[in-house]
């Protein structure tokens, strides 16, 4: 694993209710949790996504869709600075979270990740007990006495409690794939993040487990803001409030493949009345 040199710094202030600082010209409302401004991410000399600007609303589910390799995961990882860990990554533009650019020099990426949680495509439970998986994050923050309560409430929120309450000390690896993924969600919830980023959280799951996760997200959006990458068009249509369609633009001379935001709108509009032909082709299955 490679560490970025930028792993130190001062913590960012606690997420204040996103009131725009006085004199801020940008249209910062209380409803935006993320404002992306000209976000570009490069891996070495290769530009993976270019010039993405969009606003993500609080307590909504925002879906990112697009063909494979267009940079959806890259975009998502930019939102909690997980990309810092990939050597040679450079991010330009702004990712304004609660009114503050998380790429500003004084920001500590560890604090960013503490507030902006992430669930990965493949369930990745730690090879420890179910209990310890959920307790890992809270322990980092110094919780000791109230761990039992945190573990229980997180597992309940992730709709896993009833299935595991009798075997909290068992290895997390003994769970099924769908249970493991819900455990990973519980683990993310246990640190009480502000936002949860999900990178194709259901791609390794069967339709029933997928539905459970979708129900769960519906439930969670009351208290959290969720950004989800998905390959599954129906899933995006079913659960998200807003949808961003990203696609690959191939530069003819250089053959460089760069992800670009085509359209970002209410999910219903994206799926029924897309403004851009490319979006319509994609969501109706004529492309990708």
């Amino acid at each position: 694993m490679q560490q970025s040199r930028a792993e130190t710094g001062t913590p960012i202030p606690a997420p204040a209710p996103a009131a725009a600082p006085a004199g801020e010209p940008a249209p910062t409302g209380a409803t935006e949790i993320f404002q992306l401004r000209g976000l570009t991410c490069r891996y070495g000399g290769f530009t993976a996504v270019r010039d993405i600007s969009l606003d993500i609303q609080r307590n909504e589910i925002t879906a990112i869709i697009g063909p494979s390799g267009c940079g959806k995961s890259t975009l998502l990882r930019c939102l909690n600075r997980m990309n810092d860990l990939v050597e040679g990554t450079r991010v330009t533009g702004e990712v304004i979270y609660n009114g503050e650019d998380i790429y500003a020099p004084h920001i500590d990426p560890v604090e960013v990740r503490r507030r902006i949680g992430m669930v990965f495509q493949e369930p990745n439970p730690f090879p420890k007990s179910i209990y310890d998986n959920v307790a890992f994050g809270p322990k980092l923050e110094g919780h000791r006495s109230d761990l039992d309560d945190i573990v229980e409430s997180s597992l309940r929120q992730a709709a896993l409690w009833d299935e595991v309450k009798g075997k909290l000390k068992q290895s997390a690896l003994s769970l099924s794939g769908g249970q493991q993924q819900r455990l990973c969600i519980a683990r993310a919830l246990a640190v009480e993040p502000d936002v949860i980023l999900m990178d194709e959280p259901a791609s390794a799951l069967d339709p029933i487990a997928t539905l459970r996760i979708e129900d769960l997200m519906e439930e969670l959006k009351r208290s959290y803001s969720i950004v989800i990458v998905t390959h599954n068009m129906q899933q995006a249509a079913r659960i998200s409030d807003k949808t961003a369609f990203v696609t690959v633009r191939v530069e003819n001379e250089t053959d460089e493949r760069t992800g670009e935001l085509v359209e970002f709108d209410d999910t219903t509009r994206i799926f029924t009345a897309a403004a851009d032909q490319r979006t319509e082709d994609y969501v109706t299955g004529r492309f990708g």
Partner: peptide
């Protein structure tokens, strides 16, 4: 697995915590 490190980092662990609490024990 790298996914263990990513999982811990995404929970707000510092690189030192990732190493000492997840990677080394495993």
């Amino acid at each position: 697995p790298q996914s263990i490190r990513n999982g811990a980092l995404a929970l707000g662990a510092t690189p030192l915590q990732v190493t000492s609490r997840q990677v080394l024990p495993i």
